[in-house]
Structure formats: structure tokens, C-alpha cells
Amino acid sequence: MIENLNKVFESRVRLGIMSILMVNEWVEFKALKGLLKVTDGNLASHLSALEKKELLLVHKEFVGKKPRTTYNATAEGRSLFKKHLSALEALINKEK
């Protein structure tokens, strides 16, 4: 079970990002920032790390003149995150 714990998610911010993307279709950068209460730079670096691993998709568009960036978890990202969660849960239960 322990081997399912994924190094990619070893950060509070990344765990947070994936949790939000699991239950929402497309989430804006601003919404993520508000929910996670982190700085732009910090959030952006974690997002791009997850994007590189192909765990999430980035979508950029213009609404009027303002750019809007939204994020969506990939199937791969969802399944890895689920495995990570079950592993975390199993670990806690074992230590009880």
C-alpha cells in the first residue's frame, strides 16, 4: 500500500490543488488562490510541476481583454490522487 503514496503530492499546496480539481470541472487560478491562501508565485510553481507530470490540464483564454487561466485534472491525475488518498488512509488506520 505504502508504495502508492506518490512523491508528487508531498506538499500541502499540491494536495490542496488536486482536492479541489477532483470535485470541480474547471477551476480558475484566482479561485485556487483564494481557497488555498497562497501567493501567486508559489501556486504557479506547483501548478506547473503538476502540469509537467500531466496530472492536470491548463486552459488559457481571453474574456474581453483579460486573460483567464483554468485548470482541470486529467484522468491520470485523478487516479493517482485517489491511490494516494487510499494509501494515506491505510497508513493512518494501520498506526491506530
Binding site: 500541502r12 494536495l15 490542496g16 482536492s19 479541489i20 477532483m22 470535485v23 470541480n24 477551476v27 479561485a31 481557497l35 488555498l36 488518498l85 494515506l88 488512509e89 493512518i92
Partner: peptide, 13 residues
């Protein structure tokens, strides 16, 4: 961590 994950899932959706 787990409780934070649950709270984020609820609050965001």
C-alpha cells in the same frame, strides 16, 4: 492533511 483535503473539496464545490 486528510481533514484539510475534505474541507477543500467541500468548500470548493
Amino acid at each position: 492533511q486528510l481533514s484539510e483535503i475534505r474541507s477543500l473539496m467541500e468548500r470548493s464545490s
